[in-house]
Design a protein around this nucleic acid. Structure first.
Lengths: 357, 357
DNA sequence: CCATAAAGCTAAACCGCTTTAGGCTCGGGC
DNA sequence: GCCCGAGCCTAAAGCGGTTTAGCTTTATGG
């Protein structure tokens, strides 16, 4: 039989002092004499005592961890390096506050339950709006909540970018290059299971931005595809797009998908950007490395994560919820170019637009 | 003033029943009448009651989370996609057991303290040997521990690969290609702060494997460099290597570093593998994507994570600690070739070695 | 020499839940 | 009419710490 864990009571008895004294020895040694403290510590050491973090939490109300609610299981969510960058930022903020990070994926597709079971001091949630049932739950739990890529709303902390604007900028760039046959690759989100809550705030705002740009370019109507958020998902989407024929430019919702698209196109003998233009969102590290370099709207993943963590941890210390909007910037690399040959000549303005963000 | 949290006591009073009954309503409804259960739940709902996970844990001894001890802060550790793959595997295992994952980086460089504060049911630790002080601490806490890339030892759960063999295979391959001037790029590990415990088990075993291969190839002595584990670290290392001149082949300890090296070499006008061969460990997804494809020893990151999680969570249910050794496989792509021109001709066997793993 | 404060320590309440051991009621079998 | 068991519910004892309020003792100093 596994010997029971050593508790504070054991130490107290062995040292001939009260539990209070032992507790003081660990938490606030000034409250007791040096001699007693040392004796207690020696005994604690000898017996191999480690304070139980859970028991401590019950009274202190601080467990030293914040949670991150993932819309998908980890093995899917982490396929997107953008999330990894976000995590790095969150991690950097946690480090400053000596806090750990609990990754909380949905349990059997239900995130709500996972969220209510999570033993944390505060929560971060990706892509949930103010009317999501999660928000209500967290309010009941009386712990701070901050959304990332959520919808700004009164009293609710959020950090994100202006996705409508970002999408508009990107699509303007593409249409400015003369493209008329555009394929948009959205993300298959099998996230939160309440159907009513499945709508992706980000996707909706981007759709709006795209729509505006397409309208301005002459009421173009793009073909819309959807892909699992991964390299493989990108490849599959590319295959479908190429099979359908018509696109001269592909706009993906995530760089990681775009990389898969680029690879598939290259493997099919297409040259990028001569034969096909590809652009996306995020600006993950690999976007710059893979030739010819992916033109993309930079999302400050690390910074978003850091700010999110900073604000949330601040709220734990009494700070007010903040709403931070970071700016997205079009990073022009080599994966998109003016519509080639005759098409390009027919639209002389397109060539010049390339340098303007 | 923030209204106090609703507790089980509030529900009990309002419903005119005992705390026990309320508890039963939530955990084992069969123990009470349907009518009572419904009434209690209705009131709980009305008052916005959410059971406190911490309080529950104190008696049940299950918090529904396992921890992952990181040797470095998150913002550094996650620069290596290999870790991300590991996380995906762990996440997949956690999913099956409806468990969350607590990421535990060192607090102020001290992982020990972080480990003792972590409220988890079990712990995963990367790269710690059986004599590491962490092991002792976890034993005191009486929770299961499994090491990843640790040293197999009696009674201690571990999953890893045979790094000595893997390194030997890789270096054999390189020397087999005729390379004599070899640069090895190790990882700067600023991990665990106890100097005595800083030794990386993985690094030591790989050094041994390299040594054996180099010995067999004629007592070659490589130049050893070290790099931060990131693309940027790879670039910096490459700059130093190129400045020093002599290397015809570079062996990096991690793909992500190799990618940086490849990029820098390419940017310097070197052609890979004609001018310089580059190989590494891990086989992250990008290794295949970046032309000409990185030759690398595949580490089954996802599988390691999955097995680690599976075994650890099994231990929580009473299973015995297992020691799993997965196998590493040399994946030959385009980044390494026989030593070119005159040198290659002088060593005719080298060209053929390329296809043999 | 006595009031007073400071230092060191402790008993007991408390945090919010689970779980054990029983209590009460009611119906049925003999 | 009595005993027994089933069904429903509860009081109270934890779980392992922290914290409050207070009790001794020993210096302080007027």
């Amino acid at each position: 039989m596994a010997r029971m864990r050593i508790t504070i009571k054991d130490i107290a008895e062995r040292a001939g002092v009260s539990k209070t004294t032992v507790s003081f020895a660990f938490n606030d040694p000034r409250k007791i004499s040096k001699a007693t403290c040392e004796r207690v510590m020696a005994i604690a050491d000898e017996l191999g005592y480690v304070p139980d973090p859970v028991a401590r939490t019950l009274t202190t109300k601080r467990i030293g961890a914040i949670g991150l609610l993932l819309p998908q299981p980890m093995h899917e969510a982490l396929k997107n390096p953008y999330l990894t960058e976000l995590l790095q930022g969150i991690g950097a903020a946690c480090l400053e506050h000596e806090t750990s990070l609990l990754i909380v994926p949905p349990i059997k597709g239900r995130l709500l339950e996972a969220a209510s079971r999570a033993a944390v001091d505060a929560l971060l949630a990706i892509g949930v709006g103010p009317d999501h049932s999660i928000v209500d739950l967290i309010r009941k739990r009386h712990i701070p909540l901050l959304t990332i890529d959520g919808k700004p709303s009164a009293g609710m902390a959020n950090v994100g970018i202006d996705d409508e604007e970002a999408a508009y900028t990107l699509m303007r760039y593409v249409t400015g290059l003369g493209h008329r046959d555009i394929a948009i690759v959205e993300l298959e989100t099998e996230s939160y299971n309440e159907p009513a809550e499945r709508s992706s705030l980000v996707r909706d705002r981007r759709r709006a931005g795209f729509g505006r740009a397409l309208q301005e370019a002459g009421s173009l109507s793009p073909r819309v595809y959807s892909a699992v958020c991964s390299v493989e998902g990108g490849r599959a989407a590319a295959a479908r797009i190429l099979a359908d024929g018509k696109a001269s430019a592909i706009v993906a919702m995530a760089d990681i998908v775009a990389l898969g698209i680029m690879e598939h196109c290259a493997a099919c003998g297409l040259s990028i950007p001569a034969d096909i233009s590809i652009v996306a969102f995020d600006d993950i590290e690999m976007a710059a490395l893979l030739p010819p370099g992916l033109t993309t709207v930079r999302q400050p993943g690390f910074d978003k994560g850091y700010e999110a963590g900073r604000v949330l941890l601040g709220m734990l210390k009494g700070a007010e919820p903040e709403q931070i909007s970071m700016n997205a910037e079009l990073i022009v690399r080599g994966s998109a170019a003016a519509l080639s040959s005759d098409a390009a000549r027919a639209l002389p303005f397109a060539a010049a637009a390339g340098t303007k963000a």
